[in-house]
Amino acid sequence: MFSTSTQRKFWTFSDENEVARLREKHNLGFISKHGAHIDEYQRYNYFLSPEEERLLLKQYELHLKEFCRRFSPPMPKGVVGTAFHYFKRFYLYNSTMDYHPKEILATCVYLACKVEEFNVSICQFVANVKGDRDKASDIILNNELLLMQQLNYHLTIHNPFRPVEGFLIDIKTRCTLAKPERLRSGIDEFLEKVFLTDACLLYAPSQIALAAVLHAASKEQENLDCYVTEMLFRDAGSDKLAILIEAVRKIRSLVKMVENPVRERVRAIEKKLDKCRNQENNPDSEIYKRRIREALDEDDMAYTGSSRMSLDTSGMTQILSPSAS
């Protein structure tokens, strides 16, 4: 149930500013760690600004949507929703400069497949990836544990898809609306766009679902307001109704404001990212390869020398699978 979930407790934020502040904090954190030598005014010439990161992530959210749409075998909606949640959550506490979104994207989808019980093997999964498949599977498997750790192992996601079904059943049963099934196309369209916004970090899945239903109804020139006021909120106070109306209005305006980032801009940002990203986490870089080798050697030592009992939890654990070398 959403009301007792970790999703509500840890991952639903009070407003957009809080989300933005978190992102900014980790942007600054990365810069101060890796760019201490660059002075304040010059730093954004080299590093990405929070706005640039935001734009980049928006572009990658579009990529995520496209990747899931083209995925074969066809993916259930719940997997897509869960992957979006993971992706957004990961970059609340991490900077794109630290971990490249293209790698995290695939890992999020892979983990979402597992959590939502959509059974694909890693081979089947990387068959959907363009380019070097072996490398892709290495990257995904390496990042999987990191991703789970960054999500604090809060893997259960409450998506708005089941609430939508619930509302439709309820409307069919208790309302006189003619042919409620015609709302479906509008709802699907709305939910697709919702995941490109931060709404799922701000509102309950049932609120998002209700917003989708109401939006689809208004598109069909129907009015479900009396269903909300007379049926759903009959026993609730008017203050609760006011909160819901505000939430629905906000979600709908968020969806309305969705626009695709300008392609040239994103391309420039990506170029910049290639220079300023943390090379320790870039599987193509020399530093990364050397670190893997060291980790492997250390592993061998740990196996031969029985004196070392505790696991080293600093730094190295991010590269966990020896298969990445």
Binding site: G166, S206, Q207, F233
Partner: peptide, 9 residues
């Protein structure tokens, strides 16, 4: 249940 839970959030 899922549809109604969290509406007062």
């Amino acid at each position: 249940q899922d549809a109604l839970a969290g509406l007062y959030h």
